[in-house]
Amino acid sequence: MHRSTLRSALALAPFLVLLAACASPSTDAPPPETPAPPATPAPPSDRVCTEIGCLNGLSVDLQSAGGWKPGKYRFEFDFDGTATTCEATLPLRACDAGPSVTCSPNGAVTIGESGCALPPEQHGFSGFNVEGMPRSVKVRITRDGATLAEATSTPSYRKVQPNGEGCPPVCQQGHEAVRVP
């Protein structure tokens, strides 16, 4: 090794020893603490729990492959042995003329009307909602007396908390679909 290189290395040796000593952990110091896992945040005291979006019941989508044709429709339902019948005619009434669907008994089921502000060939039915949680559902849909669809279901329901965990209300909701050719 060249003398100047050796001198430079020897001159740096004390600094390297000092640097190594500073970088080594001390055996006298306690081990670093392990951070505690994050706590689950408590709901804020000013949290508002609303009733919105929390309805017990069953919703059923009506999936029409070819669109809804003009005619007189009849929806026959059996919810746990209780019959309900709804009737409507397509095209729908004007939007401001009120609902086009009438049901008997009234209030047990609501059928969604779709397209009243659109051209008549785009009118149809989006689905229906049932109050309560029937265990057995039978549906028969006819147009001008001809059967379009029949379905039987035993829906399952899931717990829904629209405001989040720990904030009431708690509802039970089910969701199904029926294909209508």
Rank of each mutant, 00 (worst) to 15 (best):
E87P: 02
S156G: 15
T142P: 06
Y73F: 03
P162E: 08
C86I: 06
G107K: 10
P70Q: 08
L12N: 09
P30Y: 08
P105F: 12
L62I: 12
A36S: 15
L10T: 12
G127S: 06
H2D: 14
P14T: 11
V48C: 11
E131K: 15
C86Y: 09
P181G: 06
R158L: 03
P119L: 03
L148R: 04
C103N: 01
N106R: 11
A20D: 12
T34Y: 03
L148P: 09
L92A: 05
D96H: 05
P32M: 13
K69G: 05
E150P: 09
P70H: 02
G107W: 11
L118F: 12
A117L: 01
D144C: 04
V109W: 02
E87F: 00
H2G: 13
E113M: 06
S126K: 04
L55F: 15
P43I: 07
N163V: 01
R140L: 08
D28A: 15
L19H: 03
T142Y: 05
A83T: 15
G71E: 02
R74V: 11
T34G: 10
V137S: 07
P31M: 05
A36I: 09
P41L: 10
G67A: 07
A88D: 04
A20T: 06
S8V: 06
G81V: 11
C167S: 09
A9P: 01
G71D: 02
N163Y: 06
K72M: 07
K69N: 07
R140D: 10
E113S: 11
A146H: 02
P105W: 06
G115T: 01
Q63S: 09
S156L: 08
P43D: 03
K159I: 15
T110G: 07
V48W: 09
T82W: 10
I111L: 05
D96E: 14
E51P: 10
A94F: 05
R135F: 06
V139G: 02
A20G: 15
T82D: 15
A11Y: 11
R74P: 02
V130G: 15
E176A: 07
I111A: 00
L12S: 14
A83S: 15
V109D: 01
G115Y: 00
F15G: 05
G145W: 02
K159Q: 15
E131W: 13
S24T: 10
V180T: 09
E33D: 12
F79D: 05
C116E: 12
A9I: 09
P169A: 02
S59Y: 13
G81N: 14
P99C: 09
